[in-house]
Simulated scan of single mutants.
Amino acid sequence: MKEVPDIIAHNLKILFIGFNPGLRSAATGHHFAGHSNRFWKLLAASGLTPQLLKPEEDHRLLTWGYGITNIVARPSRAAAEITKAEYQAGREILKDKLRQYKPQVACFAGIGVYREFIRQPGIGCGLQPVCSVEGVADFVVPSPSGLTRILFQDQLVYYQELLGLIK
């Protein structure tokens, strides 16, 4: 399986961060490509993008000052397949990316992703009280995976809050 390339640039408004690419993302080479993944619908419904994008249009996020990366680059069927060693290496790589590219907001697509990054329990969605990298705000949205039990409307609230941070 091939890795899915980052969509990243300096001084982004938002850098979205996932666990790792799923199998469909690896097969297509595009982020959040799973058929049941809600990421693209949430971006459009919240007003973060002016239209609904398809995963193969993920590069267009740079137009609005957004990017995407993952805490672990290796694709897998499920995040449960990621090893402790991969997370450890991924944390350091991600910290380096945040320091180098300096997005305004690091938006973690799921509580679990953020928990793996900062290694602390008791995480909730929304703006986090502490920045893990100086000058970069940490924000957590519910996982857009189709496996999540959180209703679309409840997820949308956090994407709308995120939009309010960058306006």
Rank of each mutant, 00 (worst) to 15 (best):
H31P: 08
A85E: 10
R119N: 12
T148E: 08
P129G: 04
I166C: 08
S132H: 00
R74N: 13
K54Q: 03
I14K: 07
A137E: 10
L15H: 02
Q88E: 06
P21S: 13
T28A: 11
I166T: 15
K2H: 00
K54A: 01
P144F: 12
V136L: 09
T49I: 06
V140L: 13
I166G: 15
D154L: 10
E92P: 01
T28H: 03
V113I: 09
L163Q: 07
Q155P: 12
H31D: 08
M1W: 00
S25V: 09
K167I: 14
R77V: 12
V72R: 08
A27C: 02
L12Y: 03
S143I: 11
P50F: 15
P103W: 00
T28M: 08
V133K: 03
S76I: 01
S36A: 10
A27K: 13
Y66Q: 09
N11Q: 04
I118G: 11
P103V: 02
L12G: 11
G112I: 00
Y114L: 14
V4N: 10
F117A: 09
Q104M: 12
L165V: 15
G34V: 09
I123A: 12
Q120W: 12
T69S: 07
V157H: 11
A109W: 05
L127S: 14
I17M: 10
Q51T: 02
G18K: 04
I14L: 03
G124E: 07
A85V: 02
L48F: 13
Y114A: 12
A73F: 01
H10P: 11
G67E: 13
S76E: 08
G146S: 14
V140T: 11
F16P: 13
K41N: 04
I123L: 09
K167Y: 14
S143M: 13
I118D: 12
V136W: 01
C131G: 14
G18A: 07
E116L: 05
A137T: 15
D96E: 13
K95G: 04
F152H: 07
T69H: 06
L52W: 02
T83P: 03
N70D: 00
R149F: 08
L151P: 15
A44D: 00
I93S: 09
A85G: 11
P103Y: 00
L151T: 04
I93F: 15
I166D: 13
F16Y: 03
L53V: 02
S145H: 12
A73H: 06
Q160R: 09
V157P: 10
L147A: 08
A80M: 05
L162Q: 01
L52K: 06
P5A: 10
Q155L: 15
A78S: 07
L48S: 07
N37Y: 01
L43I: 03
E81C: 09
C131D: 02
G164V: 14
G122A: 05
Y159R: 05
Q51V: 03
L52M: 03
A33W: 00
M1E: 09
Q100V: 10
A85I: 07
E56N: 04
K95N: 04
R24I: 00
H35K: 14
Q120L: 13
N70K: 05
G110I: 09
G135P: 11
C107T: 14
R115L: 15
P121C: 12
A89R: 02
V130P: 04
Q100S: 11
T69R: 04
G29M: 06
F32D: 00
S143H: 13
K97F: 11
L151Q: 05
Q153R: 03
G90W: 04
L61N: 01
T63D: 15
G29E: 09
Y159M: 13
R38S: 15
G135H: 03
